[in-house]
Computed example of a mutant assay.
Amino acid sequence: MKYERLEVWQRGFKLSIQIYRLFTNIKDFGFKDQITRAGLSVPSNIAEGMERESDKEKARFLSIAKGSVGELKTQIMIAQEIGYMSSDNCTRLTTECEHISKMLDGFIKTLRKNI
């Protein structure tokens, strides 16, 4: 299956774009770099994993993507607390992170059953 057809990849892709757009004008380059990298890591690791041959390798990269979702969610919460993001955006994006994380968790468990 092409990874581009996976809902979890599509949602991670859109989330990454949203993060980039929200932080375009932030002058705190260290924070901006960290949060955009975490956002990029989600769909990128899903894509890399799905291009691998074995279910074990796929599960490993999906697990990395899941870790990046947790990192991103934390950074979104910090962004809201320090005034870089509105409460509404924070709620919307953290909810999306939680949804993507659950999707990845289910996908990983399915792959590990086949190992």
Rank of each mutant, 00 (worst) to 15 (best):
R60W: 12
I46E: 06
I46G: 05
F29Y: 13
K56C: 01
L40N: 07
G49N: 08
S54L: 10
F13W: 15
E57V: 02
T91H: 15
T24V: 11
L6T: 07
L72S: 00
G106T: 10
K102N: 14
E57N: 06
I26W: 03
T36F: 03
F31H: 04
Q34T: 04
T24I: 12
L72N: 01
R112W: 08
E4L: 13
G67M: 03
L104S: 06
Q75E: 14
L104P: 00
S63D: 09
E7Q: 15
D105Q: 15
L15K: 06
S54H: 12
R52A: 01
R112G: 04
S87Y: 11
A59G: 07
S41D: 01
D88G: 04
T110P: 06
A65P: 06
I82P: 02
G70A: 09
R21G: 00
L104R: 07
I19D: 02
I64K: 03
T95K: 15
S87V: 11
G39P: 02
G12A: 11
E71C: 04
C97H: 09
E81V: 04
E71N: 05
I35E: 06
I78T: 04
R112Y: 05
F31K: 03
F107R: 01
K27C: 02
N89Q: 13
G39H: 05
Y3V: 04
G106N: 15
F13P: 03
S101H: 13
S68C: 04
L111H: 03
D88F: 12
C90K: 11
I82V: 14
